[in-house]
Simulated scan of single mutants.
Amino acid sequence: MSQLLSLEAPDHARSVRLCTERGIFAALDVEPAGHALSRATALFVPGFMGSKEDFLPMLPALSDAGVRVVAVDCRGQFETGQASPDPSFSRADLASDLVAVARCVDAGPVHLLGHSYGGLVSRAAVLATQGDPALWASLTLMNFGPAGVSSWQQERLNLLLSVIDSMTLADIWPFVRSGDALVPEDVESFLERRWLSNSPSQLAAVAEHMLEETDTTSELARLSVPLSVISGTPDETWAPDGVERMARELGARFVRIEGGGHSPNVHMPAETVSALLDFWLPRQSTVAA
C-alpha cells in the first residue's frame, strides 16, 4: 500500500479536474514557485491503493526548482472515480487514460513518472505510443520491477481478490491499513477515506495486472525515450536487485535510495527529487533546502 506521513502541500498547489477525451480526472497541479518560468513539466502516476497525494513531500522542492508537477488520480482511484460512463479497467485502457491526460496538460512533452503500479501503467502508455517524443520527454520507473510482483505480494493480492466481491471496502480496511504508529491521526483518517473512495472493480483489475504482468523490458529498450529507474530499499514488492537488472537492460539511469523503502517519495523525498532533477535538468539541478 502507498504510504504517507503528512498531508502538507505547497500553498499554490491547485486541485483541478482535467477534462480529457477519456473522461474527467482529479489532479494536483503545482506550478513553479513565485514568478519562476517552468523549466520542465512532470506527470506523476501513483501506485496501487495510492493517489496523487503520495507525491506531496516532493512538491515544494520541485516547484522551487522550476518544475511544474501534475499528479493524477487514475481511473477508479480516490477523487477521479469512474472518470467516464461504462469504465474499463483493462491495462490498455488505463494506459490510454494517461496518454489523454498528458495531452490535456498541454505543456508539450512531459516527464512521466510512475510509482509502483503506476510504473506498470506508465510503461504501457509509453509502449502504446512507441515513445512518441511529442508526448514524453522521459520516463522514470520508481520502485517498479520488470514483471510480476514478489511471492509475498502475490499472496496479499490473491487474498484481496478472494474477498473483494464478498466484503465491503469498509470491512477490508482493518486488514490493509498500515498500522504504523508514526502515521499521524489526520493522515490515517485520510488514508481510510481514500481507500473507501476507490472502485472495487479497479482494485480487483489492478491486483490481477500486478499478478499477470509480463516482462516488456526489451520492447521498452528499443524506444528512444530517455529512461531512468529509481529504487528505494528495502522493498518487498519488487526485489531491488531485479529492478537494478531491469535498469541495466534498459540502459537507463539508475539510482538506488537506501532507506527509501517502497515509497522513497515519502521517506527520502529530498534524495528522490535530487535524482529526478539530475535526470531532467542535468548540470542545472538545484534542490531547495
Rank of each mutant, 00 (worst) to 15 (best):
L157M: 07
P269L: 08
L220N: 13
T233A: 11
G131R: 14
F190N: 02
E249T: 11
D93T: 14
G259T: 03
A207Q: 02
F89L: 02
F25N: 04
I257S: 09
I172H: 03
S88A: 10
R17G: 09
F55T: 01
A9R: 09
V99T: 15
K52Q: 11
D73G: 03
P85E: 13
P146S: 13
R248K: 07
E192L: 06
W238N: 10
R39L: 12
E185A: 15
T217A: 14
P174M: 06
K52S: 09
V163D: 01
G232H: 01
A181E: 10
T214F: 09
P240W: 11
A270M: 11
D54N: 14
S38R: 14
P60I: 04
W152L: 15
T129E: 15
G261M: 04
L4K: 00
P234W: 03
I164S: 03
E208A: 15
T168Q: 05
G131V: 13
Q130G: 13
V273T: 13
A289G: 07
L277Y: 10
S197K: 13
V110S: 01
V45H: 02
D86F: 07
T41A: 12
S150N: 06
F44V: 02
A252T: 06
L182F: 00
I257W: 06
D241A: 12
W152E: 14
L160R: 08
P87W: 02
S199F: 05
G259H: 04
V255P: 04
R17Y: 00
L112V: 04
E185S: 15
P146E: 10
V187I: 01
A170H: 11
L169M: 13
V45T: 02
L141R: 10
L18V: 01
D64R: 14
T20F: 00
P184S: 00
S15G: 05
Q202P: 00
H111F: 03
C19H: 13
M49S: 13
L159G: 11
V99R: 08
L18G: 00
G145D: 05
E208V: 10
Q3K: 05
L157W: 08
A27Y: 01
L98D: 03
G131C: 08
G251V: 03
G114E: 05
S63A: 15
W238Y: 15
T216Y: 06
A124F: 04
Q3N: 07
V101P: 04
A83V: 09
P264W: 05
G50M: 00
L160T: 00
P133D: 04
F190M: 02
F175Q: 14
V110I: 04
S201T: 11
L7V: 03
R14M: 08
Q153C: 12
T216G: 06
G81I: 02
T216A: 14
G131L: 09
D106V: 01
P282E: 12
M268A: 15
A36G: 12
V273M: 08
A36Y: 04
A134R: 13
P85R: 06
A92V: 15
R91Q: 11
A65P: 10
V72K: 01
Q154D: 08
P109F: 05
Q77E: 05
A65G: 10
S231W: 03
A36M: 12
R68I: 06
H267E: 05
A124L: 08
G179D: 01
R194C: 15
R256Q: 13
E219L: 14
V229H: 02
L160M: 08
S51D: 06
H35R: 12
A125S: 10
